[in-house]
Each structure stands twice: as C-alpha cells, then as structure tokens.
Amino acid sequence: MTLLAVERMKLFSTRSPWWCSLIALALTVGFGALMAGTANTETPLTVAATQFGYTFGLVVIMVMAALAITTEYRFGTIRATFLAVPNRGKALLAKTAVVAILAGVLGELAAFGSWGIGKLIKPASDLALNTPYEWRAVAGVGLVYAVAAVIAVAVGVLVRHSAGAIALLLVYVQLVENLVSLIPRIGNDIHRWMPFTMSAKFITGDPDVTLRNINEGPPLADAGLSPWPALLYFAGFAVVMMVIALAVANRRDA
C-alpha cells in the first residue's frame, strides 16, 4: 500500500502523465464527437461507431506507461527508487499497478466520454447499451488500456530508453501485427494469435454483430479466440512480459 502511494506521488508530480492523459481523452472523445457530428442516415451512429477513436487513446496510454519507467532510467531516479526500496520486484510491481489503474480509469473515461458525447450530439440515435457486445465495446476499453499499460511498462523496463521503447511499442502495435497478415499462407494464422489482435477482438468481437458495415465500428478482429478468452490471452501475454522484465531488472546493475 505504501509503495502504491509512493508511485502515485511520483507519477503525478511530473508533467508527462498529465499531458498524456489529456491528449488521450481529447483524441478519443474528440474523434467520437467528430464521428457523431458527421453521422447521417446512410451511416447512422452506433455504439460501436462511438468507439472508433479508442486506438488513439491506446497508443497514447502506451507511450505514457513506457515513459513512466524510462524517464526513471533517463534521470537516474530509478537508483533513488532502488535505494529507498531495495526489493526491485515490489517497487516495479507497485509502479505497474499504479500506471495500469490510471490507464484503466482513462480508458473508461475515454470510452464513456465518447459514448456520452455521441448521445449528446445525436440524441435520436440508438446508443443504448443492451447486448454484451455493446457493453464490451464501451466498458471493455478500460480493461484493454490497463493490460496494454502493463505491456508498455514491461517493455520500458527491458529497453530503458524512451525513444527505443516508444518506437518498439508503436511499430509493433500499429505495423507489425498488421503487416504479418501479408505473409502468404501462414500470415493470417500468425495474425490471429497476436496479442493486440486479441485485444481488438475483445472490443469489437462477435458473436453479436458479425455482418455490420465497416462504418459501424472499429474493424473486426480475426482472432483465434472468442472475446473473453481473447482478453485472458492478452493479459497472459502482459504477465509473461512483466515476469521477464522483473527477472531482468533484478539481475541487472541499476
């Protein structure tokens, strides 16, 4: 508990988390507003369509989470941290927990903000949260952000440099997982089992809406599992990354 409080103090006494939170919310909710404002009878506003911008928030959150740890290495405060708390596993887990909680809260704010602003701009649209699919599409965003933040912290611990960690995370999430499917024959099968495909599946997944129009929500993910197991798979990947990161941090000279 003490360590959680410490990491909370550390996180919020610098500027980058505030900026990142602001940008994440502005981009997702702003994009939600844009989608709502431009929706018409041809492309009506749906619950899923309010969440188009969630990937904006996702990448910004991952940048924030990576920076939370890489700036400690950059400014040497990681050594001050390890002097105060020599149990490195505890110190890093506390940081991961705080960052993940913040990411989760921001995810819920972003998702319900986007949904709320859609309701506000287009009160006539059908935006009721009825099906499990619709609930996951909105309330699930926080869970995905939280898990993604854990992955980003782990990568940050392993790489230690802001530029490297951010480049690796963004290129992986936005490029590698997509380009993989271009490999003939095996590409699609690999793609189906990649972690962020799984997280997208949790947000956009069937079984409720399978034949919807492209304009009705973020692209459907072709993942190897159904939504909830997909989230577990995504979380499992995060846990594995974190375990590797902790093992490395414990063995390495600070």
Partner: peptide, 11 residues
C-alpha cells in the same frame, strides 16, 4: 517519435 509514428500509422 510518438507524433511521427502515430501520425502515419494511425491518424
């Protein structure tokens, strides 16, 4: 780096 990657890949 964040701007340069998020822009072409996402925005």
């Amino acid at each position: 780096i964040s701007i340069l990657l998020i822009w072409p890949l996402l925005v």
